[in-house]
Design a protein around this nucleic acid. Structure first.
Length: 159
DNA sequence: GCCAACGTTGGC
DNA sequence: GCCAACGTTGGC
């Protein structure tokens, strides 16, 4: 059974549109440097899982679209790259500290679901986005996912 | 740009 | 293993 996740990204660094334009509409989701998020990437995420993409630290924080996990977890290569901001001197190739997966673009929502809208909906009160906003890899329940999809789909035009 | 919340580090 | 200091995140 595939799980649904929410990945946060700062659109100034890497946006959903960047993913859409990427080669094969796919990118390695590198740069996660938080242990709980790492544990989920390494131990729980599976190929085929669904990913909601969330834009943070921007004018309109919102869930903006969807992607799909298209690889198994593997060590984040940037941790070994001395030129890279994600370099971690404590990582050894035989004992990597940080992991990533590859994600492929699926779609951009016609109506992005803004954080302020999420906070206005009582049924989202237990979302990790609300109660643990700093965690960068979040779990989404099936029920939450269905509600999010409904809110992100264009509403029929008034008659 | 501010600042509150929170994760990580390191001395003891 | 505690906890103070420090760094980072991210909404506003």
């Amino acid at each position: 059974m595939n799980q649904i996740w929410l990945f946060k990204t700062e659109p100034d660094s890497f946006s959903l549109q960047d993913l859409q334009r990427a080669s094969g509409q796919t990118t390695g989701w590198d740069g996660v440097r938080n242990f709980q998020a790492r544990n989920r990437l390494r131990d729980e995420i599976q190929q085929g899982d669904r990913v909601l993409i969330y834009h943070s630290s921007c004018a309109q924080p919102a869930i903006v679209g969807e992607a799909e996990v298209v690889s198994a977890p593997y060590p984040d290569p940037s941790q070994f790259d001395h030129q890279h901001a994600g370099h971690d001197p404590r990582s050894q190739p035989d004992e990597p500290r940080w992991y990533q997966v590859d994600v492929r673009f699926l779609n951009a929502f016609a109506n992005p679901l803004t954080l302020s809208a999420i906070k206005q909906h009582p049924e989202f009160a237990d979302m990790e986005l609300v109660i643990r906003p700093r965690l960068s890899i979040q779990k989404i329940s099936d029920r939450q996912y269905q509600q999010i999809l409904q809110l992100c789909t264009p509403q029929p035009a008034p008659a």
